[in-house]
């Protein structure tokens, strides 16, 4: 049922989803934290656009991959914490397999050429 309405995401968006899901696998996090993590782990190479991040987060919440909850942070601010769901975990595994396939394929082509 969840699958029926799920449109195939384009490659870029798929990548953002993958990055977000992977980040959330380390534990619940808010939007800013997700963006910061992606940026620092990628050594500042990947900079997530806020204008894309939040729509993506809400869309994934809508798809049931992640859930969100308001919580107060250590510095006493109210933040919306996102958390990976079982479905999101499954999705992450699939996307990751696909990504590995894709990078492997691209690598092969590059080496061959």
């Amino acid at each position: 049922m969840l699958r029926r309405r799920h449109k195939k995401p384009d490659a870029l968006q798929g990548t953002l989803d993958l990055l977000v899901l992977r980040t959330l696998r380390r534990g619940p996090h808010h939007g800013y934290g997700i963006a910061a993590d992606i940026q620092s782990i990628s050594d500042d190479i990947l900079r997530v656009e806020e204008g894309s991040l939040y729509p993506a987060l809400h869309r994934m919440e809508h798809l049931g991959w992640i859930t969100a909850e308001w919580q107060t942070t250590a510095n006493n601010r109210r933040a919306r914490l996102y958390k990976l769901t079982r479905a999101g975990q499954k999705r992450l595994d699939e996307e990751r397999a696909k990504w590995d396939q894709l990078t492997k394929a691209v690598g092969k082509v590059l080496r061959f050429a």
Binding site: H30, G31, Y32, G33, Y54, R77, R78, A79, R80
Partner: peptide, 10 residues
């Protein structure tokens, strides 16, 4: 509110 939090953190 979500945006405000993000900007504060940034």
């Amino acid at each position: 509110e979500e945006r405000r939090f993000h900007i504060d953190e940034r």
